[in-house]
């Protein structure tokens, strides 16, 4: 299954958030598309991103690299990048690489949008 991406803006208590809904497989072939999307958002001034990964079937280290790259870009503008994920198979990859310490991971989009710390 290919990668699907859609974005929407949501207002939260901390200000506007851009929710990036990702579906399908994020791997060495599709990750560049996600990277382009994140770079474009940051270039357009969206510095607070919520990446909703509930529709992701597969994630590999290339995908992790893109997410970390996105985090680095938003942090350069004092922004944030939060993830939404409940799938054990995906969470496991974040735990193995200890990226759970780097990314705030939420169970719902609402919770991620409401987070201000």
């Amino acid at each position: 299954m290919d990668l699907s991406l859609s974005t929407r803006n949501v207002s939260g208590p901390g200000g506007d958030r851009t929710v990036v809904e990702v579906g399908g497989e994020i791997d060495v072939y599709t990750a560049p598309k996600l990277r382009e999307q994140l770079v474009e958002l940051v270039n357009d001034g969206s510095y607070h991103l919520v990446v909703d990964m509930e529709g992701v079937d597969f994630l590999d280290s290339t995908g992790l690299g893109v997410l970390v790259g996105g985090l680095k870009r938003v942090r350069a503008h004092e922004g944030s990048l939060r993830l939404v994920c409940n799938q054990e198979r995906i969470l496991k990859i974040f735990r193995i690489t200890r990226l759970t310490k780097v990314f705030p991971i939420h169970t719902t989009v609402d919770e991620a949008v409401a987070a201000t710390d």
């Binding site: 990277r35 992790l64 690299g65 970390v68 790259g69 985090l71 680095k72 780097v102």
Partner: peptide, 8 residues
């Protein structure tokens, strides 16, 4: 700092 390691 891990961002530096993993960046693209």
């Amino acid at each position: 700092s891990s961002g530096d390691l993993y960046e693209g």
